[in-house]
Structures are given as structure tokens and as C-alpha cells.
Amino acid sequence: MTRFPGAGPTSSQTPLSRAPSGFLPSTRDGLRHVEHVMGMPVMFDICDSELEVAALSAAVDWLHWVDASFSTYRGDSQISRLNRGELTAGELHPDVSAVLERCAELHQETDGYFDIEAPYRRGGSAPAAGRGGARSIEPSGFVKGWAVDRVVRMLRDAGAVNFMVNASGDIYAAGHPDGAGAWRVGIQHPRLSNEVALTLALRDGAVATSGTQARGRHIADPFDERGPTGLLSVTITGEDIATADAYATAAFAMGAQRAAKWCAGLNGYDAALICEDETVLMTAGFKAARV
């Protein structure tokens, strides 16, 4: 039985301290913390001075639980065991099932461009087939955003109002950064080192960017081996990080022409496409949010 931190008593051997050494006073009232989990740095900037440190500890515990349960780099994770055919769909933790259902929905919404089977289909090493039901899925990208969305809810439930979480470039910002105004989020320039290309005012919303700049061409077009063309990066804003990130990943894989048409039809989410000719295509909502 997998322990579910954040929804019950925490592990008995290491009760959470009220002031673990990883959390510290920030530049202003509140907490600032960097946690390295799921292979990425997750930065917390919490402005509410009254928030209990234990709330942040619970959020961090949750991220480590997700890492253990979902990572395809861990042989004992539920995803790895599902891929080997050692677990059936019915034996999965409800959260794991929910993630896979949402991934299937996003596959439909993105005309197949968001595809958690693509990494294996394109030259990746598929896991050895186990007994019946073996799968070849790699949902890690979606899981990171989904986990941070849950962390946002946990912080809100604990009373946090003004805070920001940056998980390896995907961001959720809530309330105000300095008692007033909106969080200003820079969008990384895809070609120029050390530069911001666009700045957004963000309040109670998510931003996710996909592109070539950080990890090389890690996004595969599931329908074309040559990979996507015409785009340097795609930024999506909206209600939750997981959806924004999946949309950004899918739109980037589509390439410029298809992505432009697809993004123009988004509902509840906005987009900015940075093209290889260094033009930017923006939806009306994105343009309105620019600083």
C-alpha cells in the first residue's frame, strides 16, 4: 500500500519539524525554498508570513511520493511495473489512474500530438514485454505539472494566498508578489542566452513553455520523424500547469502552421508561439496579459 503524504499522518520515524533546515526566511516575510525532486529544481516563493512551515513540508513530501510512484527511471514505480505488465489498470493507485485518464483526454484534445507513448515509439527502448497488459508509456512530463498543481491546492488549503512555484520553468503564481500588483513572469528568449523575450502579468494562473532551448529537441512529433519545424518555443497560460504544459508540448510538436491554427481555437487557455523567423504569434488573451 503506497503511503499518500499530505492526506494522512506523515511517516512515523521522521515527524516533520516545525522548522526543518531546508526552509528559511525569505527576503520579505514568508518562505523561500528550492527542492530538487523528479530531476528538476522546484522553487517556492511564499509571501504569506503566517503560513506554517509544515504546509511546505507536506507539499515537498508529496512531490517525493509522486517521484517514487511515477518515475520511469525507478524500476519499482507503478508506471515501470505497469510497463512491465506486473500491474493491471485495476491495481493502480487512484492518482496514477487519474493521471493516465487525463493523458488520454489530452491526447484527444491535441489531435494526438500529446502522446505519452511517443518516447518509446520513436527509437526509444521499449520495455521488455511482460505478461499480458504490458504498456509503453512515459507520462513523466505531464506528471511534473500535475504534481505541482496538487501542491498549489495543498498550499491554498493551508491558507497560502500569495505565492509562486517554479518547477523547472513551469510556473504557477497566486495572489500578489509584494502585497499588490501581479507576478511578472518573463518568457525565456529561445535563442539569446540571458534574455527575456516577453513579460506577462500573472495572477492566479499557470504558465508553461516548451521548446528547444533547454533540453535540445526532446519533443518528438509523433507523426513525423524529422521533428517539428518552424517554432522555437510555445508558451501557454491558463488555469493549471499540467494542461498548459501538455498543450505547449503538443503545439510545439505540431510545428508552426498547425500549432497556429490549433492555438487560435483554445478554450480557457492562451498561447504565444515564437517562430523561427523571430516573429511572435499571440492569442488575444496572451496579448492582453503582457506587461
Partner: peptide, 19 residues
């Protein structure tokens, strides 16, 4: 046209990177 906007920001959104 894409143009530079400077660094008057609280945080930056980018494609993912490693720890």
C-alpha cells in the same frame, strides 16, 4: 517581431532543465 524585454521579472518560464 520578437524583441528583448529586460529582466524586471519575478521569475522566468522556459523549457525544462535539469537539477
Amino acid at each position: 517581431a520578437l524583441k528583448l524585454q529586460g529582466w524586471d521579472v519575478h521569475t522566468v518560464s522556459s523549457a525544462s532543465f535539469t537539477s
